[in-house]
Design a protein around this nucleic acid. Structure first.
Lengths: 202, 202
DNA sequence: ACCTGAACACCGTTCAAGT
DNA sequence: ACCTGAACACCGTTCAAGT
């Protein structure tokens, strides 16, 4: 049929991303299919491949937006309180963001590139950006420690919060009830940071 | 062709599970397909459906074996040392088990039942069994606390270790280098438990 | 330049038909 | 009783052909 021109290239791209995001939000990565996206936006399957290299490319783009969205939420956390309070707020923000659209966030863990391929450089940069936000909060709590120790402590804190939210939103590993995850995040942040302090003093 | 009888029902079941496990170990859940399993064991696709209800049923069976395998490893941890040392050993055992076959362990998080369906009762029981092992180690550290607090503390510890191993074996979220995960688990266990103690005393 | 739709090589699952 | 293989309804991706 040839050019349709009812949408600009940018609009078409947005249409595809919106439809894909909606599908994943409802049923996870397994519900995403190029043909279903094409159906929903009224184009043929081939059109997706004019805009994205393939489904992996499309999914990576969505993942990038998810990470950006979390970074924005973390930036809203006020930095005027005590470091421990900041860390708790950071953890709560992570929990809130990821449990509001759990299937979408789960995309970061469900989706794997084919064997040899590694994620693009911008992807790792976005992840690093998240980590830096955590380090900035942990650093004041460890004034005597070198940067490598601060980085490790931040990684552990981050991973711990991730672990709680991951198990809370998992449908099969419900060692944690989703409603009760908030207090668990608080407990982790408080006990872990208290332990860090006492170790440094002792 | 009719009956082949070169394998008993039990042998056939084992053949299917072995081929499936091999496929997942190599390329994750995405690499599993009923047709490929059938090809590898020299049967037709339909045969799988005489043995398992469907692929979800097959995958749940594999997941059950993975959980059992982890439980066995945890049971090898000596219970003669201090509770903190036991907890560290438990965390290390989890890390070792899950990072030896990361794609296989990832199955528990990649695989989702269809919308309405929930996992069988035995599944949750196996998960509970794991949690009880952690609680048994945490309980002596919190002699003054009621069982609910012990349970929550154990959940947080478990989730934290899971978070570290999860990020260490993830191919895209490498906030944690896989080699360096051991010390991070130690750090989490030690700091968190130290923090728990000081909170109880304070 | 942009989009289509047929084509190719795959899927999961069912079930009548064969031995 | 057990197994097959064709059938159905799907996939991702490509690309010659159309406007």
């Amino acid at each position: 049929m040839g050019r349709r021109s009812s949408h600009t290239a940018g609009e078409l791209r947005e249409l595809i991303l919106e439809a894909s995001t909606a599908l994943i939000s409802e049923g996870g990565l397994a519900s995403l299919s190029a043909r279903e996206v094409a159906r929903r936006i009224g184009y043929s399957p081939g059109t997706l491949y004019n805009v994205f290299e393939n489904l992996d490319d499309l999914v990576l783009t969505i993942e990038g937006r998810l990470i950006d969205g979390l970074a924005e939420e973390l930036d809203k956390v006020p930095m005027t309180t005590s470091p421990t309070e900041q860390a708790r707020a950071l953890g709560r923000a992570y929990l809130k963001y990821t449990s509001e659209k759990p299937k979408l966030w789960n995309l970061l863990f469900e989706h794997h590139l084919p064997a040899g391929r590694s994620p693009p450089a911008w992807y790792q940069q976005k992840i690093d950006g998240l980590m830096q936000r955590v380090e900035a909060v942990v650093a004041p709590l460890m004034p005597e420690s070198d940067p490598a120790d601060v980085a490790r402590s931040a990684q552990v804190l981050w991973a711990g919060v991730h672990g709680i939210t991951s198990l809370a939103t998992a449908d099969k590993l419900s060692v944690v009830k989703c409603d009760g995850a908030g207090p668990l995040v608080d407990l982790l942040v408080e006990a872990y940071l208290a332990g860090l302090k006492s170790a440094k003093q002792g």
